[in-house]
């Protein structure tokens, strides 16, 4: 067995992989938060709860309707996205003229309601979600065994993050989004239906969170608290990256996952807090965040 810096190779690479996977979830969640914040000026506290909902919907699809993992990957984000659409239309849109903290408070309440309802229905212990047959097993990479499903998650997450980036930075729809983030009234005065754009943005960000939830279901057990354990860390990720840049959110998310993984190897006691420590350092050195614009 080979070692690196006195650490057995498999342990190091194993933790690094875990770190990249966590980082993939940080990236997908902070991406959605950043896009929603840009358009709605709301910190969507319910993001973790909707991530959890994505995992639960895929679990329900499987156990109640016999719909498997791959269709769920599309269906669950669609279902939760429609839920987000209804939320924006009926509730969140009432907040745009108020102080921004009300958006935080409202979505915090929303998160409590969603999590509480799922806890009532399914308890807190969590339920397993089987890895689909096609992605069972592991591949020998020479220096480590890569469980196929984990490799799949990393790959898909990177593709989805880059696709989101491309849609926002490279397409016509993305140009409208960016413009509306800068000056929504003017974009509306050009004839763009900005309220609809806002609704779609919220639903899109939510769908992204739900998609992450489906990916997470076979890795973590499906349980009502899986979102809230993520979301606090994701807020730190968002503070570190700043919410001004899409690519910034992606890079920060993955990077912090890796840092967390390495900490687990070299100083496990600090692995839960290392992201927050990074946040402290970033706050001291560059208060706007690594990729932030003035807010």
């Amino acid at each position: 067995m080979f070692t690196i810096l006195g650490i057995p190779g498999p342990l190091l690479f194993g933790q690094l992989l875990l770190g990249v996977i966590n980082g993939a979830f940080y990236a997908m969640l902070s991406l959605g938060l950043a896009v929603i914040f840009g358009m709605l000026n709301i910190i969507n506290f319910a993001h973790g709860a909707l991530f959890m909902m994505g995992a639960f919907v895929s679990w329900m699809l499987l156990n109640y309707l016999g719909i498997g993992y791959f269709p769920s990957l599309i269906l669950s984000p669609l279902i939760v996205g429609v839920f987000g659409l209804v939320l924006e239309k009926t509730i969140i849109s009432r907040l745009y003229k108020l102080d921004h903290v009300y958006g935080l408070l409202l979505t915090f309440g929303l998160a409590l309601v969603i999590e509480g309802l799922f806890r009532n229905a399914y308890g807190s212990s969590g339920m397993p979600y089987r890895i689909p047959d096609a992605l069972q097993g592991a591949t020998n990479l020479g220096f480590m065994f890569l469980p196929n499903y984990r490799g799949w998650v990393v790959l898909v997450a990177i593709v989805v993050c880059l696709a989101t980036w491309a849609i926002i930075e490279k397409t016509f729809l993305g140009a409208r989004l960016r413009a509306a983030t800068e000056n929504a009234p003017l974009v509306q005065a050009f004839g763009v239906d900005v309220p609809r754009l806002i609704t779609l943005t919220y639903a899109g960000g939510i769908a992204l969170a739900a998609f992450a939830g489906v990916l997470a279901a076979p890795i973590y057990s499906v349980n009502p608290n899986m979102g809230s354990s993520f979301i606090n860390t994701v807020f730190a990720v968002v503070v570190i990256g700043g919410m001004g840049s899409i690519m910034g959110s992606i890079v920060t998310g993955f990077g912090l996952g890796v840092i967390e993984g390495l900490t687990k190897v070299f100083y496990p006691q600090a692995s839960a807090t290392v992201i927050f420590l990074v946040m402290v350092i970033v706050l001291l050195a560059m208060p706007r965040g690594l990729f932030g614009k003035a807010v």
């Binding site: 016509f172 960016r178 413009a179 800068e182 009234p185 974009v187 005065a189 239906d193």
Partner: peptide, 30 residues
């Protein structure tokens, strides 16, 4: 405003309203 624009009135604001996060051609096509 979007329906007023659709009716056929176009607006060029004071301070011009050029978007910094959009390229020149994206601004033109917006």
């Amino acid at each position: 405003p979007n329906f007023i624009a659709k009716a056929g009135i176009a607006f060029c604001p004071e301070e011009r309203g050029i978007f910094g996060s959009l390229s020149v051609s994206e601004n033109l096509m917006l």
